[in-house]
């Protein structure tokens, strides 16, 4: 059987979702952001939610999310995505409203907005990309940076006496009564990508059903910030990140 006999439209099992447009992404090679963008585009396309969805993009590496996924987007001030999503969802309750935030946005400057939005039980889905570093600004320490991890601002590793402990946002949000679904996923293997997709679908369904706030944390890599190749970064994440940020559902009501 020749290759040309296999490559036919009727044999196609996987292709780029049409909601993900042809603009080349600005992300570094191997960045987890690209996978999550692709998952969001796939889900919205498969479920037919493309016209209903309103995304709120953060400040950080994902600031240009509106250039890549072809739905309605609003760009929030730094850390204020959950507050803006609250307003949008209250004004347009029939829409699917989600925020897409990194750890510098959600866990640092926007901690207050995140926790209060979840505490009020706003019917929004929050997608949280946790790569334990400030990627866009050059790899500085984030609140989620692991102890001993070297970054641009902690060149000898993060120390407890100087920098405090890493912040586990998902555990915090899971304690709040307003949140209905809190999970932690990753996208480093094909199986993990499938599970992350199922988790995002569940979060979007919760938002549509008005059950409360859903938080999907994606433990990600930042190979450029960590100074590794993409494959090494995945291995490093499995070895170190999963100890502090274990994968699995924290709350599912």
């Amino acid at each position: 059987m020749e290759i040309n006999d296999i490559i036919k439209p009727e044999n196609c099992v996987y292709k780029k979702p049409t909601l993900l447009n042809d603009t080349n992404m600005h992300y570094c090679p191997g960045c987890s952001h690209g996978v999550v963008h692709k998952l969001i585009a796939e889900i919205l396309e498969e479920k037919g939610w493309g016209d209903k969805a309103i995304g709120v993009s953060p400040v950080g590496c994902a600031v240009f999310a509106y250039k890549y996924v072809d739905i309605d987007w609003v760009e929030a001030a730094h850390g204020r995505a959950p507050a803006l999503a609250t307003a949008i969802k209250r004004l347009q309750p029939d829409k699917l409203v989600f925020t897409y935030q990194g750890d510098g946005d959600l866990a640092a400057i926007g901690t207050g907005e995140t926790i209060h939005a979840a505490n009020r039980g706003e019917n929004i889905a929050i997608i949280f990309i946790n790569n334990a570093i400030y990627g866009m600004t050059g790899g500085q320490m984030a609140p989620t940076t692991l102890l001993g991890m070297k970054t641009a601002t902690t060149p000898y590793g993060r120390r407890v006496d100087l920098n405090g402990y890493p912040l586990a946002i998902s555990e915090l949000v899971a304690h709040l009564d307003g949140s209905c679904y809190v999970t932690r996923q990753s996208v480093h293997t094909p199986a993990a990508v499938r599970k992350a997709k199922a988790a995002i679908i569940h979060a979007f369904e919760n938002s549509m059903a008005g059950k409360g706030t859903s938080l999907v944390e994606i433990v990600s890599t930042c190979n450029a910030g960590w100074k590794m190749t993409p494959a090494q970064a995945n291995d490093w994440m499995v070895e170190h990140m999963f100890k502090k940020y274990p994968i699995g559902d924290l709350k599912n009501e």
Binding site: K16, M25, P29, G30, S32, V187
Partner: peptide
Amino acid sequence: VCPDACIEVY
């Protein structure tokens, strides 16, 4: 796993 969605599979 492709971050840039550049692979089509048949």
